[in-house]
Nucleic acid binder design. Structure first.
Lengths: 222, 222
DNA sequence: GACTGTGAATAGTTTCACAGCC
DNA sequence: GGCTGTGAAACTATTCACAGTC
């Protein structure tokens, strides 16, 4: 199925920054501040002020010239746009080190993502507990996705299992996948996939380390 | 210090894909294939073939028209460009769930990143063990960074501690930081920082979930 | 005939700069 | 005077399309 443009279409780059602004706004609220300027948001988020304004303009006009943005209203608008007005149920597949850590990660629940089920293919792990849940066997996946109303799944399996797991998830009706396995996942185009590859991040840092070294060397030669 | 352009300057977007190609090439080698075309690399990496070719052209001309790329040579060139020809020593700061999981993560060592030290500010965690290492107290950080030759640090602390930890790391001479704390980190411009915000990833997925819902609804109305 | 390397075209993103409003 | 909202300009990245090479 082809992806249609949504009613109000927000650029990808902007979407990926909205959660950041939301986090900052929560912090600002906790400080008791009622309004915030694009300059202040820029400072707190590490994003250029013009970019903040352009990003926020995609949500509509919720700022007041000369004053700034009403923090409360802006939070609401961003939450609404991101679909965070109700909580989402999340499943974690793969109960190794990473899956275990993610199950216990406070940040998810704090931001309205309820970890609703844990799965593993290894019968020895089935029944282990974390975050008040027992690990279930993969064979239960389809059923549990239905009963728990799971919309988002996190893949934290070894690379070799990732595609198979993704297929099962798609079959069960999951439309959003966050993939931690270092493995490309193919899925129908109506399924959103994001990936986090931890080793890749270090390898990218390694590149820039190299560049700095070259600079240092150049400086020494001078 | 201002960031200078490096000798052969590779676009950021390309740099961030080089580790991906490298991973694919390792897989291809294991299959015993000696050459690989941009089409095949595209298929295996989920990147468009023209983009693959343009990316690789930034390394120089290591392909052969009518044949493809020599897998061995290409791996070597990418490794060299990414500065992965020797292993890097990595420190993990923060020994909570996530820090613990990262310490045991096989992917890092498999790709040449040696976890060389673990730190935590909590005296009760000091002495705990993971991956053959004992957790050390933050007060030892500066010294250990020197003796272990640590170039890259991973911050896996709560948000509130992240900036302070980053300051200590910078003071100790660390030039690359991977930040898992949901908190902006400020550092001198010669320090590279990458961030991974797990909740943000789910929030972004939530946005696209919302879009699909709208589509489904639209279909139902029709 | 198969495949790379790359200019040219296109698309997407960021930044500037300022008119317009409070 | 302070600050938003936004066209226009600048930059970055992607994709096309094909000449050039093996």
């Amino acid at each position: 199925m082809a992806r249609l443009t949504s009613p109000r279409n927000i650029p990808e780059a902007t979407v990926s920054r909205l959660p950041l602004y939301l986090r900052i706004l929560v912090e600002v609220t906790e400080q008791g501040e009622k309004t915030v300027s694009s300059d202040r948001l820029a400072e707190l988020s590490g994003v250029n002020a013009a970019k903040v304004r352009k990003d926020l303009s995609h949500l509509g006009s919720y700022g007041t010239r000369g004053v700034g943005y009403d923090v409360e209203i802006l939070m609401l608008q961003i939450s609404r746009e991101l679909g965070l007005t109700s909580d989402w149920a999340v499943a974690i597949v793969g109960f190794g080190n990473l899956g275990h850590a993610l199950a216990n990660y406070r940040g998810f629940t704090e931001r309205g993502f309820r970890i609703a089920a844990l799965f593993d293919a290894d019968p020895r792990k089935v029944g282990e507990k974390a975050a008040g849940l027992s690990v279930r066997h993969m064979s239960e996946l389809k059923e549990v996705v239905g009963t728990e109303g799971i919309s988002i799944a996190i893949i934290a399996t070894p690379a070799a299992a990732a595609q198979e797991v993704a297929d099962l998830l798609v079959e069960a009706g999951v439309k959003s996948i966050l993939n931690f396995a270092p493995q490309l996942i193919n899925a129908p185009s109506d399924v959103s996939i994001r990936k986090v590859d931890l080793s890749m991040e270090l390898q990218i840092l390694s590149y820039y380390l190299g560049r700095t070294k070259v600079l240092d060397a150049a400086r020494l030669v001078k």
